[in-house]
Simulated assay, not measured.
Amino acid sequence: MNNHIPTRRHVLALGGATAITAVAGCVNSSGSQPLGGADDEGNDDTSNSGDDHNHDHDHELGHPEASIEVSMESDEDTHHFVPHVVHIEEGGAVTWYLESGAHDTVAYHPDNSNLLPSSTERRIPEDTHPWASDLYRTEGETFERTFEESGVYDYGCTVVEHGHGPDRGRGHHGHHRTHEETGMVGRVIVGWPEYDEDTEPALRAPQADLPDRARREFDSFNERTEEALRHGGHR
């Protein structure tokens, strides 16, 4: 489903109002320091994932929300989904909005291999349908998806920067680096799936054909997801 929906963020942007601060995911278990690399000030610790941004956050994994917004951002040579990992209820919605740069959101599924060559193996639950947004270039553009099925869903940005401007569909086997190669990948946890690699492909070790930076990010996501599903929140 591909929608350009005037979300709260979009309306504020069009109205010239002050933008709402983007949030980045963390796990907080029973009052302990947030996991997934957050320091005492609430900023992401970059030591595990190679992420050289600090992101403010107030979204806690282990506490699924009915809906959430994820920004798509560029800053110099780095690109990010913020929050990187989100936790929503079954039937909940995620709205991606373009904060800066040019980006898309594409699920890891063989059906998307023409856009994302590294998606030869699915990283979303079995018997669920993948998504692939348009390429967004205008600040404030949005894409929304409702997630009806419990599970863990991974996605990335396929955009590649070259002399003719942003494009997509070439994958990391081409001559220019994609945003996926810089670590612009994300995860949606829906409901309370079992932490089981047999039923949740996203929880398996990242496949060898993924770019190195994306593999490191998914390893980090798996640690945070395990903490959220096995120890976080109250069912």
Rank of each mutant, 00 (worst) to 15 (best):
N3T: 15
P6L: 11
T7L: 06
R8D: 14
R9L: 13
A19E: 14
C26S: 13
S30A: 14
Q33M: 14
A38I: 15
D39L: 07
D40L: 13
D40T: 10
T46K: 07
D51G: 00
D51F: 05
N54F: 08
E60I: 06
E60A: 09
H63G: 00
S67P: 00
V70G: 01
S71I: 10
M72V: 05
E73F: 12
T78A: 09
H80Q: 12
F81E: 01
E90D: 07
T95S: 15
S100P: 02
G101H: 03
T105C: 13
D111F: 04
N112V: 09
N112C: 08
L116I: 13
P117Q: 11
S119N: 04
S119Q: 03
T128M: 08
T128L: 08
H129T: 14
H129D: 14
P130T: 11
W131G: 00
L135A: 05
Y136I: 06
G140Y: 06
E141S: 14
E141G: 04
E144A: 15
T146K: 15
F147M: 10
E149A: 13
G151R: 03
V159N: 03
V159H: 03
E161M: 10
H162I: 00
G163M: 04
H164S: 11
G165M: 08
G165V: 09
P166I: 07
D167L: 05
G169Q: 08
R170G: 05
H176I: 04
E181C: 01
T182I: 04
G183E: 01
R187F: 01
V190A: 04
P193H: 09
A205K: 10
Q207K: 05
Q207D: 15
D212Q: 12
R216C: 01
S220G: 03
F221E: 01
F221K: 03
L229C: 06
R230H: 09
R230Y: 08
H231G: 00
G233I: 08
R235K: 11
